Amino acid sequence: MGCGKKFNDNVAGETIFGDDNCVCDVVRAIADAQEDVVDVACDVSCSRSIDNLLAPVSRNNLDTVPFILYGKDLKPFKAFGADIEFSGGRQRLDCTESFIFRVKEVSDDCCAVIELLTFDDEEPDAPGNQQGARCDKDPCEQIDGEEVRDLNRTGICITVDLKCFCAITCLPAVSVL
């Protein structure tokens, strides 16, 4: 399937691909599913992750479907952002980079606000402790050997045009809230 081609897939009996941008449709379905979970308090695929998030059995606090986006060149998208670190009484910018995201919202025109997720087992949300994918050349280098419970939100969000991506890989549903 190439960029802009239609593809049909069902999640919980509903077609999730409604327009010509399947990446946008999948990310929108993840956002809707995550919103439902938060409001209510193949083996690995986007459909499976969304189903697991919504399944009655999943009331085990799953709240997020982490995902990786791929550009039109089919290379994984790595995002960068910065937070403020306090060091010696001074404020400094601290760069974080990641291949892994959590959707916050998706607009009707397929613009999305996504949050960078990183692995940090020391202080998950403390500025200056978010190593993310620093120096990693691909998502596997960021993910391999990490404990699922160490996947954390960074609070760093970026806005992307989902029409600029051709592929998405969903990771198993997790709890990061």
Rank of each mutant, 00 (worst) to 15 (best):
L162Q: 01
I143E: 03
L177A: 13
D94L: 07
L69H: 04
D9R: 05
G132R: 10
V44M: 01
T118L: 04
E85A: 08
I68T: 04
V38R: 11
G132P: 05
E147H: 09
C95T: 14
V176H: 10
D109G: 00
K6M: 03
L93G: 08
K75T: 10
P56R: 06
S98L: 10
D144H: 08
D120H: 05
R92W: 08
I143W: 07
A55F: 01
C170W: 08
F80S: 11
E147D: 13
E122T: 13
V174H: 12
T15F: 11
L116M: 12
A29W: 05
V103F: 02
P139A: 15
A41N: 12
G128R: 12
V40S: 06
L116H: 08
D161K: 11
P127V: 07
D32N: 13
L162R: 03
K78S: 09
T15R: 15
R92Y: 08
C22I: 11
N21C: 15
S49A: 15
L177P: 12
L54S: 01
F99Y: 15
I100N: 03
V23R: 05
D121K: 11
A31N: 01
F80Q: 06
L93Q: 15
V38D: 09
D32I: 09
A29Y: 06
D73L: 02
L177K: 14
I68P: 06
I100A: 07
E122P: 06
D43F: 04
I16W: 15
D83G: 14
V44E: 03
T154Y: 14
V65D: 03
D144M: 02
Q34Y: 06
S45R: 00
L62T: 00
N21D: 14
A41W: 10
